[in-house]
Simulated assay, not measured.
Amino acid sequence: MSDHILVLYYSRNGATKAMANRIAQGIESKGMQAKIRTVPDISDGIEFKQPIVPSEGDLFVQKADLKACAGLALGSPTRFGNMAAPLKYFLDSTSSQWLSGALVDKPASVFTSTGSMHGGQESTLLSMMIPLLHHGMVLAGLPYTHPELHSTTTGGSPYGATHYAHREKSSKLSDDERALCFAQGQRLAMIAQKLTTL
């Protein structure tokens, strides 16, 4: 069984990438590896804008990464209360993984970033959960035992970690957001470890 969790994200201004890195730290604090991957931009014609291998930054996800992972953390900035098109485009192409059951019974969590406080964080998280449920994944949110969910004045949700970037599109996470991302990674790793022993 795999000993790593796939942290898959799309980021335009860096905030979702910062969240992915912090979630990966939480995963690795529990003794599992985090494999961070992203998806390429797409053009108006729904074609990839970038080469197969990026010139810098995280590598692009491959379909084989889904089968190989022990769990999945999925992140996207919000686009009108929904996940961003590049991530949706990738998920829409995973029919063969759905048919083969590549993700069945693996744990998953979701995370997002918005430029405004009420910019659709929770609906974006819910939109990312739907294809994961179709894939048969076990969804893990953030329980209210995390004190930051009670104290945060920035991001944070029981549906998954969130970041409020304000108008200046800041990718700097608040202390509460950093704590919740880390906790989400830890929880995902703990659940993956428990499920692999069943």
Rank of each mutant, 00 (worst) to 15 (best):
A18H: 10
H118R: 13
P143C: 07
M128G: 02
I36G: 00
C181N: 03
P51T: 01
F60E: 14
Y89S: 13
G26M: 04
L126A: 08
D105C: 12
L142H: 04
W98F: 04
T38L: 05
M19V: 06
F182A: 04
A24N: 00
G26L: 03
F90W: 08
Y159A: 05
T153M: 14
R79A: 09
D3M: 13
G14F: 06
M137C: 07
A15H: 12
L173C: 03
Y144L: 11
I5W: 03
P131V: 04
P143G: 07
R12Y: 11
Q97A: 06
R22L: 15
Q184T: 10
T197Y: 08
K67G: 09
V61K: 10
S2N: 09
L139C: 05
Q97I: 07
T154K: 14
E177H: 02
V53P: 04
K30I: 09
T154G: 08
L142C: 04
T38G: 05
V110R: 00
S116Q: 12
Q97L: 11
G120A: 10
A102R: 01
W98R: 05
H118M: 15
I52N: 12
A161T: 13
V53S: 12
P143L: 05
A140R: 12
S96P: 11
T152C: 07
E122D: 15
R167F: 07
M137H: 03
R187K: 10
G119H: 06
M117Q: 12
G101R: 02
A18V: 09
Y10R: 14
E28T: 09
L126H: 06
G14P: 03
H163S: 09
F182G: 03
R167C: 08
P77N: 06
F111R: 01
Y89W: 12
T152K: 06
T78N: 07
L142T: 03
T152L: 10
C181G: 00
H163A: 15
T152E: 08
A15M: 13
P107D: 05
K49H: 11
V53G: 11
S109F: 05
Q25T: 12
R12S: 14
Q186V: 07
L59M: 14
I52F: 09
S55P: 09
P40V: 00
A18R: 10
S43E: 08
T114C: 14
L126Q: 08
P147T: 11
L126C: 09
M1C: 12
A20L: 13
D92H: 00
P40E: 00
G115K: 02
P40A: 02
I52S: 15
A24D: 01
G57K: 08
S76R: 10
L188W: 00
S95V: 15
K172N: 13
R187W: 10
S29V: 06
S170N: 10
I46S: 12
T114D: 09
